[in-house]
């Protein structure tokens, strides 16, 4: 019998791996990929909760999250492409125009 807390632990670890990746990768595209990882962990969390609470609403939310993640990935990558066109680089250390 798989306990709920195991699923939640996996989800938490995956989320933190995603955070680590977001905060430490140089390549912007890898940062975006880490974000996808975080989203996936959240999906797993929701699905597990919904299963153990015997309510379908969590999984409905997962469905919507997947849809929105797709849209977000598209737009994000579009921005990366535009950035690449203007700065000829996808590394975060080269794009610091918000520096105060």
């Amino acid at each position: 019998m798989v306990h709920l807390s195991w699923y939640l632990t996996v989800s938490a670890m995956l989320f933190c791996i995603g955070v680590f990746g977001f905060l430490t990768r140089r390549n912007i595209i890898m940062m975006l990929l880490s974000i996808e990882l975080m989203l996936n962990s959240v999906n797993l969390n929701l699905a597990a909760m919904s299963h153990y609470m015997e309510d379908i609403r969590g999984q409905v939310l997962v469905f919507f999250i997947i849809a929105v993640a797709a849209a977000e990935a598209a737009i994000g990558l579009g921005i990366v492409v535009t950035l690449f066109r203007n700065y000829r680089s996808v590394y975060t250390e080269d794009i610091t125009i918000l520096k105060g």
Binding site: I17, F20, L23, T24, R25, E93
Partner: peptide
């Protein structure tokens, strides 16, 4: 990895 702030990221995570 990013040059500076690698460890901050690890700690935060």
């Amino acid at each position: 990895f990013v040059q500076k702030g690698k460890w901050a990221g690890l700690v935060a995570a």
